[in-house]
Design a protein around this nucleic acid. Structure first.
Lengths: 199, 199, 199, 199
DNA sequence: CATGAATGAGTGTTCATTCAT
DNA sequence: CATGAATGAACACTCATTCAT
C-alpha cells in the first residue's frame, strides 16, 4: 500500500536534480548541451537521464512545460488583482524575471512540436486572456493589443538584454518599461499588421 | 602586384559563394548546419571552406560582420535624412527586415567573442549615435533613451515573431510599431534602470 | 518439504510465463529481443527475469533445451512405430513443424557452449540413433547415412524456406520431401565425406 | 585528367580492406559485430567506415551483393558446359564452398530490403534459370524442381554443417551430395507443396 | 590552391545486469 | 521473493578539422 513511495523518493530526487542540472547546463551551453554533461552535473549516470526522460527532446519539453506552467500559475494568481494594469505589468515582470534566471528561450522553439508543450501553452494563453481583457476594460493598455501580442512580447525584454556581452542582471526592467509604454493607450499609433492568432 | 589578381578572382568568388551558402544553410538548419552541407551548397570541397575560414566559428563571425556592416551603411545613409524620427524608424525597419529574411540571430551570440565582430559592432554603434542624437534633437524620441537602447531593441521585433510556430513574414512590423511607440516621448514613464554602456 | 510448494507454484508459473514470452519475443524480434520486453510480455519485472535465469544467454539456453527435449520425446514415442521409414519421416516432420512455428534457429548457435544444451542434445542424439537404426534395418534409408546426418539435416527444410521474403508456412514440406528423397536408397550416389561424429 | 586515380588508389584499398575485415568480423561475431571492431581490423578509423558505407546496413548489403554477384558470374560461366547435370552440381559446389569460407547467411536476411541486393539476386535467379533449364532437358534433375528451389537449397549444405560445434571444413560436400541426390529423377516421390515464386 | 579521404572525439540512445528497497 | 531504479559499457553514427595528393 505504501511500499513504493520510499523508492520513489530517490527517483523523484533524481528527476528534480536532472531537471535542475539540465536547466543550468542548457543556460550555459545552449541547446547543444550534452546529455552526458547534464548527467554528470546531476550526479547520476547517463542511463538515468533516459530512465526519466525518454529523449533529450523530452527532457527539454519537460523543462519548458515547467516554466510555462509556473507562468500560468502566476497569471491566474494575478487575474483578480485590484489594478488590472499593474497586474499585467507584474505578470510581465515575473515572466521576464523567470527568463532572466536561465535563458531558455531557445528551448521553447526546440520543443514546439511536443503536444505537452502546446497544451500547457494554451493554458497560459487563456490565463493571459483574462489578464489582458481586464487591462483593456480598465483602459490600462491600448485596445488594439491582444493577449497573443502580450504572449509574444513576454520574452522580449530579456532577449534584448542578452545581446550585451557583460551580463546586467536587472537591465531587462528598462526594456520591459519601454515596451510596456508601447502598450499603453497614450500616444499609440495605429498598428500596421493585424494581431496573429494562436501562439 | 600583377600575379595574384586572376587567382584572387576565383578565390574571392568562392568566398562569396561560401558566405551566401552558409547564410542560407544556417537560416534553414540553425547553428548546427554542417560545414559539409555548406560546402556542397557553395559547390566547393569541404577543405576549401577551411582555406577561407579557419574555423566554423570564423565563418559565422564573417557572416555576422557582413550583416552588421550592412546595417552600419544603412545607418550612415540615413544620418542626414530630413526627418530624424522617420529616419530612425526607417533604420529599425531595415534592420528588422534584414533579420527577417534570414533568421541568424542565433549566430550573433555564437560569435560574441570574436574581435572583428565587436569592432564592426562599435562602428554600427557610433553610426547609430548620430541617428539617435538627431532624433533626440527633433523630439521624435524620448530623451532618456540612448543609442545603445536602440541597438539592443533593434532585433526584438523579429525575435518576438519567431516564437510563433507558423511563420508570418510581415508580423514583425506590428511589434516594431509597438516598440517604437514605447520610444516616443508621449506617455513615457520613467525608466527603472540606467541605460547600459557599450554593446 | 512443505514450506516451499506454494511459493514455488508462483515461481514456477513465472518461469513458464517467461519462457513463453521469451520464445515469442525472440521469434518476433530475433536474438536482439530485449530482456525488458520479455519481462513486460510475461507481466513481471525485469529483475524477476534474472532471478530465474542468471543471464540472457541462460534464458536462451533454457528455451533451446525445452525445444530439444520435446524433440527427444517425439523421437522416443516414434521409436516403436510399425513402419520405421514413416516414423523417421514423421519425426523430421515434427521437428520442422516445431521450428517453423517459432523460428528460433538463431538461438541454437547462441547457446552452443552451454553444457545443459549439449547434454540434452546428446539425449536426442541417442533417441535418434534408435530411429535411424530401425530405418536402416527396414531399408527405408540408405545405409551410408547416420543418425548424426539426420540430426544435422533436421533443421534444413525450415532454414531453406527462411530465405524467402514472403513467409510460406507450409513450404518446408516441399524441401523436407526433397531431402528425404535424398536419404532414400534408390538412386543414391556415394557420399564424398565420412559421416561426422557427435553433434 | 589523371589526377584523381592516385588518391582513389588509397581509398579503394581502404574500401577493400573494410569489406574483407567486415566479412571476417561478421563471420566470427555474427550480425552484431561492431563497426568499431571492423574498422580496427581493417586498420582504419571508425569514421572511415561511414565514409565508404553510409550505414552498417549498407556495408552488409555491399558484402551480400559481392557474394551474390560472384555466384551469378559462376552460374553464367557454367551455363554452356557440356554436361548440364554436372554443371549444376558444380555451381552448387561453388556456392557452398563460397559460403563455407565465411558463414554470412544471416547477412542475407538482414539485407533483404536493400534494392541493390534484390536486383543482384534477380540476376542470379535468371542465370540459375538457364542452368536448371538445361539440367531439366538433359534429364539430370527431376522435372518438378525449379530454379527457385535450387536457389533456396543452395545454402543448405553449409548451414547444416554449422550446427556442428567442431568445424569440419569439407563436410558440406556430404550434405550437398545427399541433397543433390534428392534432386535427381531416380526414386523421386511427388512433392507435397508447389514450388514458390520469386526468391 | 583545391580536393576529399581520413580522423577521432563526441552525440544520443540502448540494454544486460546489479541491488536497495 | 519481486520490484524497478540505477548503472555504465557499448553502439551506430556525425562532424569539425587535418593533410597527403
Amino acid at each position: 500500500m505504501k511500499s513504493t513511495p520510499t523508492v520513489r523518493a530517490d527517483a523523484a530526487r533524481n528527476r528534480e536534480s536532472l531537471l535542475a542540472a539540465a536547466e543550468q547546463e542548457f543556460a550555459e551551453r545552449g541547446l547543444s548541451a550534452s546529455v552526458a554533461d547534464i548527467a554528470r552535473r546531476a550526479g547520476v549516470a547517463k542511463g538515468t537521464v533516459f530512465r526519466h526522460f525518454a529523449t533529450k527532446e523530452d527532457l527539454i519539453a519537460s523543462i519548458v512545460c515547467a516554466h510555462i506552467a509556473a507562468l500560468t500559475e502566476a497569471a491566474r494568481r494575478l487575474s483578480d488583482a485590484a489594478d488590472p494594469g499593474t497586474a499585467l505589468l507584474e505578470f510581465l515582470t515575473i515572466a521576464a524575471d523567470q527568463r532572466q534566471q536561465h535563458d531558455l528561450t531557445f528551448l521553447q522553439s526546440a520543443s514546439e512540436s511536443d503536444p505537452r508543450v502546446t497544451e500547457v501553452r494554451d493554458e497560459l494563453h487563456s490565463a493571459l486572456g483574462t489578464l489582458v481583457g481586464r487591462a483593456h476594460q480598465s483602459g490600462a493598455i491600448r485596445s488594439d493589443v491582444t493577449e497573443t501580442d502580450v504572449f509574444l512580447l513576454m520574452c522580449a525584454p530579456v532577449h534584448v538584454v542578452e545581446n550585451l556581452a557583460a551580463p546586467k542582471p536587472l537591465l531587462w526592467k528598462r526594456y520591459l518599461a519601454i515596451i510596456f509604454d508601447g502598450l499603453r493607450p497614450e500616444g499609440a499609433h495605429p498598428l500596421p499588421q493585424p494581431a496573429p492568432e494562436l501562439a
